[in-house]
Structure formats: structure tokens, C-alpha cells
Design a protein around this nucleic acid. Structure first.
Lengths: 205, 205
DNA sequence: ATGCTTAAAAATGTATACATTTATTGTTTG
DNA sequence: CAAACAATAAATGTATACATTTTTAAGCAT
């Protein structure tokens, strides 16, 4: 697998230290490659927002914070509603079936954190794809991928899983019956609700 | 200056070929460095959306297209209104003064395209900074920087300059008088109007 | 003791050389 | 003649070695 993907996973699973500069030599030994592909990966991750600068040179893993959590969910709410609006008329029954299948798989208990995050994004992705808006889709994908970092809190202390599942189901039913306004509203609530829970939890820490 | 910045400028000024793969050796000779910093730059620009993959390896400069133009303005409209909302109570008189100074400098006729784009972003940046929302600000900045690619059309065939200036002035007046609702509405119209003009123009090409 | 200067170390940035993958072209075969 | 295959050329990906920058820590002066 790609080095930057492996690093992302290790960030998610707290295998890499937070708040201190990531050293290229150390990583190159850990991942068994030279510094060049490590540099490439760190650069990508910095541009994507997974890493932040540390001093004048070097990068580090930023702390989770309620403001970013809130921003991510606010941005997702606005942009994903836009996308669903555009996609609505083009969503086929097979898309809904696929989405239903994906959200059901989220029940599997042995799923890893990152696996859950990927599935959740795939669910949303399935509903937005028919819109055929590459630029918008791309940004939304980036936001979702970043939000995975915060998923540990949602599926851990907050016990959010079942509720999220239900909201997915309700959303699919609205789409199936052609009820656009309610569908978009449901999606917005789904995203904002999770965001509020999460940022409140982080504020209290 | 940073290589990736120089490449961005050359993309904006059409100094680099569109639609064909950019060759690392060619660029390394043009910019007088080895392939490594070129690779770094191309990688960043790819992640930022300035370049797209070409086949299985290599990148190219994508064509301008109305869909992306529309997406950029729709995203900007939603997210910048959010930011202005958050910033509103925190915008100081000196911020407004600075913004007014920036928008006035947009009248200078000798300004380059990229200079105009930078100034325009600085204007918006000044109004959003007081919100103190790094994650949101970061995304908005990325969208604005990408939108610079389309600025040539706005300031060229569309003759948009004067109108944009006026809208900036109206916006500042709303902010100055504490009229939040109208300010946000004005901002949304400002962004969407430019987007509509632009994407209609591109559709007709 | 504290703060500044300076020197050494350790880190990142860059260049060159090599490995691997991708694209192209020429040949062969149905 | 077209299509598929193979061989070659050319591009990207990676490793190692070197240059530059940044950090750290030690020494000196205040």
C-alpha cells in the first residue's frame, strides 16, 4: 500500500506521536524505505491537512480540537447538502440498494476504526456520485477523510453508532420516495448532530 | 521563490502547456533545479487540485470548465458566508480600514493577473480572519487560490472589475453599520453573481 | 544567574545515480 | 490489413550521497 495511506492509518491508530516533529529518518526506518517517499508522503499529508508545520522545518500531527471538529461538520453539512441536491434527480434504485448494503455492513462488529470510516464515506459517496460534480465531490471527500480522525470519539465514548445507522436508513427512505426537501434536511441534521455531539465532548475535555 | 509558486504563476499565465503531461526533466531544466524539488512541487499542486493525473503516471494542467467554476463559486458562497457570520462580531474598525485599502489597490491598472487575485483574496481574508477558525479558513483559502485560474475571464471578456469593486464597497458599508444579515447576503450575491457570469461564459465557449 | 554569541550536531533540502514502471514502436501472425 | 505481441526507449519512482538550513548546547560576557 501507499506510504501516505499507511501513515494516515498509523495517525488514526495513534501509532505515531502527536505534537512532536515527525523525523524523516525515523519514519524511513519504520516503513523500510528511503527518505524520498517519506518526504513525498509528509508533503501530501501536510497539504491535505493531516499534518501541520512544526517550527521552520518539519511537520507534526496536530491535536484534535473542538473547533476543527465543528468546522469540519459545518463545512460537510453545507457542501454535502449542495451535492445531494444536485444528485437527487439522478440517484438510481441501484444506487440506493448499494448505499443500503454499505450502511448495513457498518453493523459488523469486527470492523476497524478506519474500516468504519471508509464505509461511512462510501455510503455518502454513493449518494453524491450521481451528481457528477468532480470539483465539489473532491473537496467533500477530503473533509470526510479528515473527519475520520475524530471517529474514535463518535464510536467510542459517545455511543453514536446506532443512531447514525438509523439516520442513514431514514435518509434512504426519503430519497426512495422522492422527498427531496426532507432528504436534504435529514442529511443536514445527521451531519450537524454528530458534529455538535463531538465538539461538545471535546470542549469538555 | 518556491518552485510550486513559480509553477502556479506559469499555469496562470499560460506559460505551461495544457492537456499534455508535464515532464519532470523538462521542468527541471526550465526552472534550473533537479527533479526532486520539481516532483515535490507537482505533488503539492496535484493534491491542491491545480494538476490532475495523466494516465497511470504523470500529471497535466486541466482544462478550465464551467462545472468547476460553478462548483468553486457555490462552495465559496456557502463557506465564506459561514465565515463572515462567525467573524462578524469580531471585525474591528482597523480591519475594515485595511480591507478598504486593499480593495482600492485593485484599481491600480498595472496590476498583474496573479497580483489582482492575491489582492482580492487578501480583501476577503481580512474580513474572515477575526473569526479565528483555522480549519474553515484554510479550505476557503484553497478555494480562492484555485479560483484565481478563472480570474482572467472575469477581468477580461466579462468586464467584471468595476462591479466587483462596487460590491466590495457596499459589503464594507454593511459591516461598518453592523448590519449582519445584509452583509452576509451581499457577500453571497457577490460570489454567486461572479460565478454565474463566469460559468455561463464558459458554457457558451 | 541570565542572556547573547558561536560552534557543533542533527535535521531537512537537493543533486546524482539506479530501479522499476509505463509508453511507443516495430514486427509478426491470423 | 488489422491486431496483438515483443522489444526498446523514455518516463517516473527510489536510493544514496552531498549541501544547506535549523536546532541545540556550550561558552562567554554582562
Amino acid at each position: 500500500m501507499d506510504i501516505s495511506q499507511r501513515i494516515k492509518e498509523d495517525i488514526l491508530n495513534s501509532k505515531l506521536p502527536r505534537g512532536v516533529p515527525l523525523r524523516q529518518v525515523v519514519l524511513s526506518e519504520q516503513y523500510g524505505v528511503s527518505r524520498i517517499p517519506i518526504r513525498d508522503a509528509l508533503l501530501s499529508l501536510k497539504v491535505e491537512g493531516w499534518l501541520v508545520p512544526h517550527g521552520k522545518a518539519g511537520v507534526m500531527i496536530p491535536d484534535l480540537n473542538w473547533k476543527e471538529a465543528e468546522d469540519l461538520s459545518l463545512m460537510r453539512a453545507e457542501l454535502e447538502c449542495l451535492l445531494l441536491d444536485m444528485a437527487f434527480g439522478c440517484i438510481l434504485p441501484e444506487d440506493i440498494a448499494k448505499a443500503r448494503c454499505l450502511t448495513n455492513r457498518l453493523n459488523e462488529p469486527q470492523l476497524s476504526l478506519i474500516g468504519r470510516g471508509e464505509l461511512n464515506w462510501l455510503f455518502h459517496h454513493t449518494l453524491y456520485s450521481p451528481a457528477n460534480r468532480p470539483a465539489l465531490h473532491r473537496v467533500v471527500e477530503g473533509l470526510n477523510k479528515q473527519a475520520i480522525r475524530y471517529l474514535g470519539f463518535q464510536y467510542g465514548p459517545l455511543g453514536y453508532r446506532q443512531k447514525s445507522q438509523n439516520q442513514h436508513e431514514v435518509l434512504l427512505n426519503f430519497i426512495e420516495s422522492g422527498n427531496k426537501t426532507d432528504a436534504i434536511d435529514c442529511l443536514r441534521q445527521h451531519i450537524l448532530h454528530a458534529g455538535t455531539l463531538l465538539s461538545n465532548y471535546l470542549k469538555a475535555m
